[in-house]
């Protein structure tokens, strides 16, 4: 009996040692020498492996960041400035602060405003649907409603609103990794600066069709009337292909465009007060009137000197 025990222990010990030696040899043979800073950088990364930075994952980002001469092409949208400062500290680089961004859904074609005109009966995937045809509503630019963006989001920041049929971004969870923007075959989702205290304005429509066709397809669409462009005093509204776009770097959040938009396509979020459209309109009209008067006065002034001269002559 005791002999059996001794033999068992002996055999197992020898076997264990043998395997350990083999393992050690293999580990030595296939050892990969890596820059230790890669590990350090990876440690400060968020570890979501979302790919928002353009690399396959956090490790790939770290690997590339360590090798890069500077950090201009490296930015972790999830970790933001805080993480980038840490990365910069490890690698001895400097980074510029970037404004925090958020995903914005630029379609407001709710089920009510944009009725379906045919029935889609395929795989519930926006990509499949977009490759097949223009979509089940009259609008061939808007949200297809199958939720590819929701599936692409690794942070649970997107969800489909069952009433409107449109995706909703949870600002507190959104890390602006951009996965949803890439997943959307219609290019509706845009990363925009969060804005001061989260206040921002954007045109919630990307329909490039002409006014009448758009109007027929969707009640909430930008019809390309260009009233907003005429109203804006900051040159923030770009008007291209029958659809308006607000340049976030120029927008001063005055909400004048919002007041004039006939379809409500211009959205303002996180403002403390609701828009008093009448007051804003009155204000703008007053300003325009004054401007017109001033212009008239200037014109008159320009013409006026000519007359006295005539008289003198």
């Amino acid at each position: 009996m005791s002999q059996t025990i001794i033999w068992t222990i002996a055999i197992l010990t020898v076997l264990g040692l043998l395997l350990a030696i083999i393992l050690w040899f293999i580990a030595e043979r296939f050892k990969v020498v890596e820059d230790p800073r890669i590990d350090e950088v990876e440690k400060v990364m968020p570890g979501a492996n979302c790919g928002g930075c353009g690399f396959a994952g956090c490790r790939a980002f770290a690997d590339s960041a360590v090798k890069a001469p500077n950090l201009d092409n490296h930015y972790c949208p999830v970790g933001g400035n805080e993480v980038m400062q840490k990365v910069a500290a490890i690698l001895g680089h400097e980074v510029k602060e970037k404004a925090p961004m958020v995903a914005v859904v630029r379609c407001n074609g709710t089920c009510e405003a944009r009725p379906t005109v045919n029935d889609y009966d395929g795989l519930a995937s926006c990509k499949v649907k977009a490759a097949l045809y223009a979509g089940d509503t009259g609008c061939s630019f808007g949200c297809l409603g199958c939720g590819d963006c929701v599936n692409a989001c690794t942070f649970g920041a997107l969800s489909m609103d069952p009433v409107t049929g449109l995706p909703v971004v949870d600002e507190t969870k959104c890390t602006a990794c951009g996965a949803c923007a890439k997943a959307c075959p219609k290019g509706i989702i845009e990363l925009r600066p969060k804005g001061p205290r989260g206040m921002r304005m954007y045109v919630s429509c990307v329909n490039k069709d002409k006014g009448p066709a758009v109007k027929k397809a969707c009640a909430n669409a930008c019809i390309g009337c260009s009233l907003c462009e005429k109203t804006c005093t900051h040159g923030a509204i770009v008007f291209e292909n029958n659809v308006a776009y607000i340049d976030p770097s120029k927008c001063k959040l005055c909400r004048e465009c919002e007041a004039f938009c006939p379809t409500g396509a211009i959205h303002a979020v996180n403002f403390p007060k609701p828009l008093d459209a009448a007051a804003v309109k009155a204000r703008v009209q007053e300003r325009k009137k004054k401007a017109a008067e001033a212009a008239a006065a200037a014109k008159a002034a320009q013409e006026a000197p000519a007359k006295p001269i005539e008289k003198e002559a």
Partner: peptide, 12 residues
């Protein structure tokens, strides 16, 4: 199962 729907997409 909508096999071809997803396969066509993957093929592209």
């Amino acid at each position: 199962i909508p096999l071809l729907d997803s396969i066509r997409q993957a093929k592209a």
